[in-house]
Simulated scan of single mutants.
Amino acid sequence: MPEKIVFSTTANLYKNENLLPNNGKMLIEKAREACQGAYSPYSNFCVGAALILEDGEVVTGANQENAAYPSGLCAERSAIYWAGANHKGKKIKAIAVTAHRTGEDKFLAVSPCGSCRQAMLEYEHIQEGNIEVLLESDGGVLVFPSVASLLPLQFDKKSL
């Protein structure tokens, strides 16, 4: 008989974005604004991400689709790669992610895809420190203490 193993994670749920600590409310607002930069004519699903660096600078990204799928890029990787290329050595403190459908004002619960989780985890490892993750949800904003908490079975340089 196999042994059962349970993987779990913990997040804080803030039912009102005004209750978010640190720069949380501002990051959610910046992620919402970033949705305006989405190019999503195929999915009609606009995703925005905003991250804050250790010096307080905010970097945003939006999903970019392409008819030659999978040539597009998610909002999270768009933002994190920009920060990595243009702010080398600066630590990322937190990232916020949200989405909405084209033509709708309601923001939706969204979670990073596996590729984005893996890319964000790489930066968490590079900087040797946690990146807090804020996800807009149906009940408010979920705040995870790290990217690693979203990816319990990690693949990293030690796996090679």
Rank of each mutant, 00 (worst) to 15 (best):
M26I: 04
V110L: 01
K157G: 06
A31M: 05
H100N: 07
L73D: 08
W82F: 02
L160D: 10
K15L: 09
S111Q: 09
N44C: 11
C35Y: 02
V147N: 08
G84N: 14
V58K: 08
K4Y: 06
I126D: 15
S71W: 10
R117H: 01
C74D: 15
I80L: 12
W82C: 03
A62L: 01
N23L: 00
G140E: 08
G61I: 00
E54I: 01
Q36P: 07
K88H: 05
P41A: 12
L108Y: 13
V147Y: 05
S137G: 09
S43L: 04
L53H: 00
A34T: 12
Y14Q: 09
A49Y: 03
A11P: 01
G61N: 00
M120K: 04
Y39E: 10
E17Q: 11
S40H: 11
A85I: 07
S8F: 15
V6G: 02
Q127F: 09
A109S: 13
A67L: 09
T9R: 15
A68E: 12
V6T: 14
S78I: 04
I28T: 01
K91I: 06
P70D: 11
T102P: 00
A50S: 12
Y39V: 10
F107V: 09
A68G: 00
I52G: 01
A62T: 02
E65P: 10
E54S: 11
I5E: 07
D138N: 12
